[in-house]
Computed example of a mutant assay.
Amino acid sequence: MTSTTRPATLATVAAAAGVSVATVSKVLNDRGDVAPATRAMVRRLLAEHGYVPRQARARRGATVELQLEGALCAYSAEIVMGAMQEAAASGAALVVTSTDHMADGLSWARGLVDAGRHAVITLVAEPSPAQLDVLLRAGLPVIVIDPMNVPASPVTSVGPTNFAGGMSATQHLLSLGHRRIAYLGGPAGAASNQARMHGYRAAMEAAGVPVPPDYVRTAGFCYADGLREGAALLDLPEPPTAVFAASDESALGAIQVARGRGLRIPEDLSVVGFDDTQIAAMHAPALTTVRQPLREMGAVALRTALRLAAGERIDSRHLELATELIVRDSSRAA
């Protein structure tokens, strides 16, 4: 590669090739009205001069702030790792901060700009409209990862296919012959919980299996929620033979309370989770779960943040990544 003190420009490459800047631009944009020999020469010189498009240069030098809510756990650690890997590959910088430092004032958002931030990724369940508004007013693109509720435009969000994941988990339990299947959900108002629950209900309805009202529980995504709501399900006069939990942590809570009552997993109770964090495979028995592409979600959020910071347009303000059912040892035939 030619050594230069400044980044190569279209004019630099055009002069070396003995063609016009317009011709080099046509090669970059894959226009068809350039002779094959000229096209090959221009591409070779682009590579030799290390030409990087202006938007890519803007992405390479950007700094993105990722705001993390609460303590780093298995779920958030995977997302942060995906964002870190993408930042390293893109030549960008990633700064991870705690939401303890978030505020609503415009001076706070402008302070981020003064600190060299070009975009903000927030891993917060429900960022306040005021916080999002001041970031946008300060000129900072905002990407929200898996929010409880999809924010209004122009904020961009990234999440999994929650409905499809809920349906596939329930269909798996139905295929094993279970009919008394309960849903152990997250917060009632969370869009992700609603989508997973609707996927569960859709699968049950399609199979012609009624859902007793007491079989649908809403609480949270944590281990303690699984302990509490799992106990409530097992206290029913006709307890379920299978539970689909809206997170891995709540699934493990349900398993723990079942074991405390002498039930065997999966012989007496099948359990399916949602997330596929590291604890799912490490648990005994290994947890059947719906895999969220957590690292890819972090990577997509970072790439989107860089594109918006560079002034590029994106096709959608809400990006959904496919989920996948991972069958392990916590589910078996009824």
Results as ranks from 00 to 15, higher is better:
M1I: 02
T2W: 14
T4W: 10
P7Y: 05
V13L: 06
A14T: 08
A15D: 05
A16Q: 10
V24H: 08
S25V: 08
S25D: 14
K26N: 12
P36R: 13
E48F: 15
P53L: 07
A58K: 14
V64T: 04
E65L: 02
E65A: 03
L66V: 02
Q67W: 07
A71P: 09
C73E: 00
A74M: 00
M81I: 01
E86M: 02
S90V: 01
L94W: 00
V96H: 01
D100L: 15
D104S: 13
G105M: 09
W108L: 11
W108Q: 09
L112Y: 07
V113H: 04
V113G: 01
A115Q: 09
A115C: 03
R117L: 09
I121E: 10
S128N: 01
P129A: 01
P129H: 04
A130N: 05
D133A: 10
L140T: 05
V142T: 07
I145Q: 13
N149G: 10
V150M: 11
S153P: 08
P154A: 10
G159A: 14
P160F: 14
G165N: 13
L173E: 00
L174M: 04
G177Q: 06
H178D: 00
R179V: 05
L184Y: 09
G189I: 00
A190H: 09
Q194N: 06
A195H: 09
G199L: 12
M204F: 08
V209R: 05
P212Q: 08
Y215K: 12
R217C: 14
A224H: 13
G226H: 11
L227A: 10
R228E: 15
E238D: 15
A242Y: 06
A245Q: 05
D248Q: 10
S250R: 14
L252G: 05
I255C: 15
R259S: 03
I265W: 03
V271E: 03
F274W: 08
D275E: 09
T277H: 00
Q278Y: 00
I279Y: 00
M282Q: 11
M282N: 02
H283C: 08
R291H: 10
P293T: 06
E296P: 03
M297V: 08
M297Q: 14
T304P: 05
A305M: 03
R307H: 00
L319S: 05
D329Y: 00
